[in-house]
Computed example of a mutant assay.
Amino acid sequence: MEHLTPAHFGLEPLDLRKLTPQEEFWRDHQRWLQDCGYMLRPRYMLDWQPSWPVNVRGTEYEDAQPLIRALTINDATRLSDGAYVTLKIIKPSLHPYEVDIAMSLCSKQLASDPLNHCVPIYDVLKLPEDNDKVILVMPLLRGWREPEFETVGEGIYFFRQLFEGLQFIHKQHVAHRDISILNVLMDGSMYPDGWHPCNRRRMRDNFRLLAKHFSRTERPPKYYFIDFGISRRYDPDDKAPLELPIRGGDKTVPEFMDDINLPRNPFQTDIYYVGNLIREAVINEYKGFDFMWPLISDMVQDDPAKRPTIDQVVKRFADMCKKLRILKLHARVGLRDESFGAVRDFAHLFTTIKYTLMGIPPVPTR
């Protein structure tokens, strides 16, 4: 298949030797961020000069990597301890509740709760020249889909964190309202030497090398809900709040297909979001998770009133897991369209034996 380039669409190739207008914002605020305790990568230094020759494209060089979402997202190193962080620009005029909700969900009182899977907020930086822009400082996380799941147990571990994380959020009387494939991330437990934020398959410190990683079974990650921009907190006495729909990243919500002006219960919509994420990104992608269909089918019913509450989901899921035998939990879950599945299954036997001898359980634990 022919590789498509910008020229195929009548676009000029991106000149990696120049910052995009969105990237220039970060360059212009580099010294201020440094004074706040956060160091940007070399590309955003005020005196940056490309490290590659003029006649070279530069794609293999670290400082040639442009930000994909430069308008709102960058990464940095926290000077106090060397930790890698994510910087996110938000506008309170557009998302007036995001800072308050995000900060409250990771408050000192709640942060130690093992069921809390809300992204921590380390800092809130107010831009000196713009009252309608603040920067949230969070840990550097990565997409949850790569590397792929290897076993049923790894999937169980993922589902459990999604369910208990949403249960935690709902117990705080908060509806997320925008749970999707992009708004669930995981930490870097599997990547002992980190990764590059612009290309997660590469190392940060040596961009030409692939990032080393372990399996989810060996180094279990923690999964996080992010982006509380359209989340809302409700009165604890209001057990069934009604809110006009706001369409998030998942555009398939059944109740949003009818009258958009009809108020809906956002907690019921959250149930659909999580169920649909598991249906589309896991069950439909991987073999081995068909046992989840009864629960997921109930979570994605067209009638919101017929969906289980998150407490009911957590209980049903726990009961289902008790019935799964250890061989099932160890079983490999290849992609549904994979080739040479039988060969991969045979090779997986040796991995299972290795984990058993090492005393590593089939369902990861932290």
Results as ranks from 00 to 15, higher is better:
109 Q>L: 05
111 A>T: 02
60 E>D: 15
80 S>F: 04
69 R>K: 12
119 V>M: 04
97 Y>T: 12
32 W>S: 06
119 V>A: 04
44 Y>D: 02
27 R>K: 15
121 I>N: 02
63 D>P: 01
116 N>T: 01
118 C>W: 00
114 P>M: 03
99 V>D: 08
63 D>C: 02
47 D>L: 07
35 D>L: 12
32 W>N: 06
99 V>Q: 15
64 A>T: 03
109 Q>Y: 04
102 A>G: 05
101 I>M: 04
31 R>W: 05
76 A>H: 02
68 I>E: 14
24 E>N: 12
44 Y>P: 00
102 A>M: 10
117 H>Y: 00
94 L>K: 15
110 L>V: 01
103 M>K: 11
86 T>E: 10
28 D>Y: 06
114 P>W: 00
81 D>Q: 07
45 M>K: 07
34 Q>I: 08
45 M>T: 08
117 H>R: 05
31 R>E: 14
78 R>I: 11
90 I>Y: 09
84 Y>F: 14
39 M>V: 11
102 A>K: 03
84 Y>T: 11
53 P>C: 04
119 V>R: 04
42 P>V: 05
47 D>Q: 11
45 M>A: 13
93 S>N: 13
73 I>G: 01
44 Y>V: 02
121 I>L: 02
40 L>H: 03
33 L>I: 07
73 I>W: 14
74 N>M: 09
53 P>K: 13
75 D>C: 11
92 P>T: 10
113 D>E: 02
66 P>I: 08
56 V>D: 13
60 E>S: 14
79 L>C: 03
116 N>C: 05
84 Y>V: 12
72 T>I: 13
54 V>R: 14
58 G>C: 10
98 E>P: 08
121 I>G: 00
99 V>K: 12
101 I>Y: 04
43 R>H: 02
69 R>Y: 12
61 Y>K: 02
99 V>M: 12
104 S>A: 14
76 A>G: 11
97 Y>E: 15
71 L>A: 15
87 L>Y: 07
85 V>A: 08
120 P>T: 06
28 D>H: 14
117 H>T: 00
98 E>G: 09
94 L>N: 09
61 Y>D: 08
112 S>E: 04
41 R>G: 10
42 P>Y: 01
121 I>D: 01
108 K>F: 01
52 W>H: 09
33 L>E: 04
76 A>V: 11
117 H>P: 00
81 D>W: 01
106 C>G: 02
102 A>Q: 10
96 P>K: 10
120 P>G: 03
66 P>D: 08
34 Q>R: 14
75 D>R: 03
107 S>H: 07
86 T>M: 13
61 Y>W: 15
87 L>S: 09
64 A>K: 03
112 S>G: 00
30 Q>D: 12
65 Q>V: 12
99 V>G: 02
111 A>C: 07
76 A>Y: 05
98 E>H: 09
75 D>A: 09
68 I>W: 10
33 L>R: 01
36 C>N: 05
48 W>F: 09
82 G>V: 06
98 E>C: 09
32 W>T: 11
59 T>D: 15
55 N>K: 13
112 S>K: 06
80 S>R: 11
